[in-house]
Simulated assay, not measured.
Amino acid sequence: MSNEETKIPRPSSVIAVAALVMFEALAVLAYAVNYAIHLTSDGAVNIGGRLFMLALCLFLAIWQGSVAINFFRGRAYTRAPIIVWQLFQLILSVSFFQSDMPIVISAAVLSIIVAGTTVVLLFAPKTTQFLGDRPSQ
């Protein structure tokens, strides 16, 4: 039974998770725009690889935005993509701690905080109840 049938009010944890995932989508979109601006710069990858990377980043940003919107609407199937993305984010963030640039390390810490918060809120009792995984009390 979905939340649309039970009319459970949307908890703040659902709003927070949707907002954090949308924030991540906008961050990936910003990276894609920055990547597009510097597409013709010299690098180790040829232009075909760069265009593929740009397309991949744009696809991921759109996909994440779609997941955030559908999670906000109460679609329980969006939990799996959110978890997978958070795990990728944690893995990538840990590798950024090897950088000598303080801004990169700060971004890694922020990314880990966002991912951890998202996972905790994703499995909060009110969130799972809203998604229809728990009976209403």
Rank of each mutant, 00 (worst) to 15 (best):
A32F: 11
L121S: 03
I91T: 05
I82W: 01
I37Y: 08
S99W: 02
C57D: 10
F59V: 00
A27Y: 14
Y31E: 13
V104C: 06
I82D: 02
G49Y: 02
A108C: 12
R75N: 12
T40C: 08
S106V: 10
A32P: 06
W63Y: 15
A61S: 12
F123I: 14
G49A: 06
A30D: 06
S66W: 03
W85C: 13
T40F: 09
I103M: 03
N34L: 11
A76W: 07
A30K: 09
G49N: 04
F97T: 01
I37N: 03
F96M: 14
N70W: 15
L90N: 02
W85S: 14
L87S: 07
I47F: 11
P125Q: 14
V119R: 10
L87H: 06
G48I: 01
V28E: 13
I82N: 07
A36S: 09
A30G: 13
N34P: 03
A61T: 08
F52L: 01
A30V: 03
A124F: 06
A27G: 11
S99V: 02
G74S: 11
I37R: 09
Y35E: 05
S106G: 12
L51V: 01
A107R: 04
I112S: 15
F52M: 05
Y31A: 11
Y31K: 07
T40P: 00
L26H: 07
G48K: 01
I105Q: 12
Y35A: 05
F88W: 08
Y31I: 08
R50Q: 10
F59N: 00
R75S: 10
L92R: 01
A61C: 06
Y31D: 05
L58N: 00
V114A: 12
A76I: 08
S111E: 00
A27R: 11
V28C: 10
